[in-house]
Computed example of a mutant assay.
Amino acid sequence: MNPIGNLNKLFDSRIRLGVMSVLMVNEEVSFNDLKQVLEVTDGNLASHLTTLEENGYLKVHKGFIGRKTNTTYSITKAGEKAFKGHLAALENMIRSIE
């Protein structure tokens, strides 16, 4: 059996892995907070967030704080399921090597 067969290719990126990890433990996170926590550029983060959104793994909420736009993100049920599946596959892979 292929030990990496059940890993989700979408989470190969350390940035997407980081985004999902942050969203698993926070109900909602702003773009700026994600950028700060992950220490990435606007453009880099935006492209990874778009990929996750297009795959149905996160929801985008656009709003305003005063006159400034505020974009926040939250994980979807599909995203949560996919990420938990990826983590389980990682654990199984590690156990199979021991």
Score class of each variant (00 low, 15 high):
19 V>N: 06
19 V>H: 02
21 S>L: 06
21 S>F: 04
21 S>T: 13
23 L>C: 13
24 M>W: 11
24 M>Q: 10
26 N>R: 06
27 E>I: 07
28 E>N: 08
28 E>Y: 04
29 V>A: 08
29 V>D: 09
29 V>I: 09
30 S>D: 02
32 N>C: 15
32 N>Q: 14
32 N>T: 14
33 D>Q: 03
33 D>N: 12
34 L>S: 04
34 L>N: 11
36 Q>G: 14
37 V>Q: 03
38 L>G: 05
38 L>M: 09
39 E>Y: 03
39 E>Q: 02
40 V>R: 11
41 T>L: 11
41 T>E: 05
41 T>Y: 01
41 T>M: 01
41 T>F: 05
42 D>E: 14
43 G>P: 05
44 N>P: 09
44 N>S: 15
44 N>F: 12
44 N>W: 09
44 N>G: 14
45 L>N: 00
45 L>H: 00
46 A>N: 03
46 A>I: 01
47 S>A: 13
47 S>P: 07
48 H>V: 02
48 H>P: 09
49 L>M: 08
49 L>N: 01
49 L>K: 00
49 L>T: 00
49 L>E: 02
49 L>S: 00
49 L>P: 08
50 T>S: 07
51 T>H: 00
52 L>P: 06
53 E>H: 09
53 E>S: 10
54 E>I: 09
54 E>P: 07
54 E>G: 10
54 E>H: 07
55 N>L: 14
56 G>H: 02
56 G>I: 08
56 G>Q: 05
56 G>K: 06
56 G>F: 03
57 Y>S: 13
57 Y>N: 08
57 Y>I: 08
60 V>Q: 08
61 H>C: 08
61 H>F: 11
61 H>I: 03
62 K>D: 09
63 G>P: 09
64 F>W: 09
64 F>M: 11
64 F>D: 12
66 G>Y: 14
66 G>F: 13
67 R>A: 08
67 R>D: 13
68 K>E: 10
68 K>C: 08
68 K>S: 05
69 T>M: 11
70 N>I: 03
71 T>W: 01
71 T>A: 02
71 T>Y: 00
72 T>G: 00
74 S>Y: 03
74 S>H: 00
75 I>Y: 01
75 I>L: 03
75 I>H: 00
76 T>D: 00
77 K>Y: 12
77 K>T: 15
77 K>R: 15
77 K>H: 15
78 A>V: 07
78 A>G: 06
79 G>C: 10
80 E>P: 14
81 K>H: 02
81 K>G: 01
82 A>E: 07
82 A>P: 14
83 F>G: 13
83 F>T: 13
83 F>S: 11
83 F>D: 10
84 K>L: 15
84 K>W: 10
84 K>D: 02
84 K>Q: 10
85 G>I: 02
85 G>Y: 04
85 G>P: 10
86 H>F: 15
86 H>P: 14
86 H>V: 14
